[in-house]
């Protein structure tokens, strides 16, 4: 069954069963492999994407529930090919990734946090990031990087979200 899907500001048409979780559509239909499969049951956060600005585990989100909603994946987080999102920049500066597998999910949860709360406290960061598990235990660096991005003027002014009016299409 053909379904329309807006990802990173681009309209796609995919032909899959409507019960297919978004993660499989992203990775196998749209070749957006930055979003990772971790546990498959919404327990680890590796597959986190933003739906209308809210962090959601894509491994349990059926495609059927996404009509008219805006999906943002890690591929859409940077404002351009030349410029990273302030969080991505802070991730590099603080050497957050070790194995790196959880990082796209971590970044999407962090981006959603800063979009709604530009200056989070340590407790607010901990609360928002609880659902993203890091096997390498980089939680201290994750918190530092979020604080760093939050306190920079860049982070204040360039938190990136998509507007429906900016949409392109792949058709």
């Amino acid at each position: 069954m053909k379904k329309k899907l807006s990802v990173n500001g681009v309209q796609h048409t995919v032909d899959v069963d409507p019960s297919t979780p978004l993660l499989w559509v992203l990775r196998e239909q749209l070749a957006l492999t930055g979003t990772k499969f971790g546990c498959g049951i919404a327990q680890c956060g590796a597959c986190t994407v933003m739906i209308d600005g809210v962090p959601i585990r894509s491994c349990v989100l059926p495609l059927a529930s996404l009509e008219g909603r805006q999906v943002m994946t890690i591929e859409g987080l940077a404002p351009s090919d030349e410029k990273l999102h302030p969080l991505q920049q802070a991730w590099i500066e603080h050497q957050v990734p070790q194995c790196g597998y959880c990082q796209s999910g971590q970044l999407m949860s962090a981006a959603a946090l800063l979009a709604r709360n530009p200056e989070p406290t340590d407790a607010e960061i901990d609360g928002a990031m609880q659902g993203n598990i890091c096997r390498c235990g980089m939680y201290g660096r994750i918190r530092k990087a979020i604080k760093s991005a939050a306190t920079s003027r860049i982070a204040q002014s360039e938190l990136h979200t998509f507007d429906k009016t900016d949409e392109a299409s792949d058709e």
Binding site: A42, T48, P55, R57, V60
Partner: peptide, 14 residues
């Protein structure tokens, strides 16, 4: 305030 219930709990049972 932290992680929305809907981050994991969708409209139907997984």
């Amino acid at each position: 305030e932290s992680i929305p219930c809907m981050a994991c709990h969708q409209s139907t049972n997984a």
